[in-house]
């Protein structure tokens, strides 16, 4: 099957997050001149990937419980409680609202262009 083949063809670069952005995000919450050891950055990077799977898995439980196949934002928000990160929810909902508005505006501009 095509999609199982594409899963095998995934390279390590595809599933690793960019280290520089991880480092910059981490430094964003630390006082200036705080250093992060190389293996601490590596551990953070690995943790971030595991976190993605951890959250996606918890979200997928909600998706399956409602007999759906596609994970929706509501499933992710609900999953935050399950994985004990409820304090992320408020900001994530606000960011998602903004993201959604931007996407809708883009779509409408495109449609108007096509219609014109």
């Amino acid at each position: 099957r095509k999609d199982s083949a594409s899963k095998d063809n995934v390279t390590i670069e595809d599933v690793t997050l960019p280290k520089s952005i991880i480092m910059r995000l981490a430094k964003g919450v630390l006082p200036p001149n705080t250093q992060i050891q190389a293996n601490a950055i590596l551990a953070m990077s690995k943790s971030a990937t595991v976190f993605i799977n951890h959250l996606a898995n918890a979200a997928n439980e909600h998706t399956q419980n409602s007999n759906k196949k596609t994970i929706m934002p509501a499933d992710v928000f609900a999953a935050l409680d399950d994985i004990e990160f409820p304090f992320f929810r408020e900001r994530l909902e606000a960011e998602f609202k903004k993201f959604n508005e931007t996407q809708t505006t883009k779509r409408n501009t495109y449609r108007r262009k096509v219609a014109a």
């Binding site: 997050l17 953070m44 971030a48 976190f51 996606a56 929706m72 934002p73 992710v76 992320f88 900001r91």
Partner: peptide, 14 residues
């Protein structure tokens, strides 16, 4: 949309 929420959650997690 869900992937967007997961991505931002990951940033907050880091």
């Amino acid at each position: 949309n869900a992937a967007f929420v997961i991505t931002l959650a990951t940033e907050m997690f880091i």
